[in-house]
């Protein structure tokens, strides 16, 4: 529809921008009123710990979406990150049990993940595939390869470092949380405070604009897939720590959670764009709500229903409040 923004209206972020976030927080307040154990330090810690893998992959996805534009079908998206994470976990676990030192295991996992990122980048920027399609196919392929590596078995890992990731505290804060916070901060620095990051955002915002500014569009977009693969690589260790081993089938759930959290996170931002903080916040809040309903005694079978309805409510409200504005 031909619509033209008028020159005189300037938009200032107002309260309607925060309606979706408010609803989310409202749900959390409701939970904490009904589940008295919900608002305890121990439980909050549990929520954060649970959300770490999702937070990491969401950060990676945010980078790709920022570089590719936020149209889900034609813009930037990387559905293969959870598969990369599982691959990272699988390679590491398999090699650890074979007796290799951790450093070598993670180097091999890193190499494998970078190959996935590079293939994604190649498919999208060289072959001209839509990211949705390329990364979905890669998801299938990488999971398949990982199943060959692990023979679809659950492998338990008891390496001190991996265990530390789960249970070690540093100055009263679990090591995993501290590390994830550090990683996310690093990614924030990369995306928002470097020329590389601004270039990435420029490419996502308007490809033509980036091109006429002399930016190497396809290289930047390609790099975003590498960043995503790196977050997948890191996430692999948290998966290992959480389950104390590599287990098949995690990737499907992780993928759905990742997409849910990232795009719900976009609804949190007053401008309705995918941002790093939005994605991270989305990941934490979605986990909080899952755990919250569980501690209220709601049957786990209902979780999917609640999550699905949350997307609907939050995204629809975001759409409506944008229209009203």
């Amino acid at each position: 529809m031909p619509s033209h923004s008028s020159a005189s209206v300037r938009f200032s972020p107002n309260l309607t921008g925060y309606i979706p976030l408010t609803i989310f927080l409202g749900v959390l307040v409701y939970i904490s009123l009904n589940a008295p154990n919900f608002v305890t330090m121990r439980n909050l810690e549990l929520v954060l710990m649970q959300s770490l893998p999702v937070v990491l992959v969401c950060a990676g996805l945010a980078a790709v979406v920022m570089a590719g534009g936020d149209d889900v079908v034609s813009g930037g998206i990387d559905l293969s990150i959870p598969a990369t994470a599982v691959l990272s976990a699988g390679v590491t676990a398999q090699m650890l049990t074979a007796g290799w030192p951790l450093a070598l295991c993670s180097a091999a996992a890193l190499a494998a993940c970078l190959v996935v990122g590079a293939v994604n980048a190649l498919l999208v920027t060289r072959m001209g595939m839509t990211p949705l399609l390329a990364t979905l196919a890669m998801f299938v392929a990488v999971v398949g390869v990982n199943n060959v590596i692990t023979e679809s078995r659950r492998i338990n890992v008891d390496h001190t470092w991996i265990v530390a990731l789960r249970s070690q505290d540093v100055v009263g804060v679990p090591l995993g949380i501290t590390l994830t916070a550090a990683i996310v901060t690093l990614i924030f620095f990369l995306l928002h405070l470097t020329r590389f990051g601004l270039g990435l955002q420029a490419v996502g915002g308007s490809r033509d604009a980036a091109e006429t500014s002399g930016l190497n569009v396809s290289r930047l977009f390609a790099m975003s897939f590498v960043v995503a693969a790196l977050t997948g690589f890191l996430c692999g260790f948290f998966l290992l720590a959480r389950g104390a081993g590599s287990s098949p089938g995690v990737q499907d759930n992780l993928m759905l959670e990742m997409v849910l959290a990232t795009f719900v996170g976009a609804a949190f931002s007053p401008r309705r764009v995918v941002t790093l903080w939005g994605a991270v916040l989305g990941a934490v809040l979605v986990t909080a709500i899952s755990i919250g309903f569980k501690s209220m005694g709601v049957n786990v079978f209902w979780t999917g229903l609640i999550k699905g309805s949350l997307i609907v409510v939050v995204v629809a409200l975001a759409a409506v409040s944008n229209r009203v504005r």
Partner: peptide, 25 residues
Amino acid sequence: LHLVPHFTVTESVFMGQELTGRLGL
């Protein structure tokens, strides 16, 4: 126009030619 809608005026003007200081941009 070739501009990114959600960029600020400053970011748009310096797009691809950002100035860097000691601590990043």
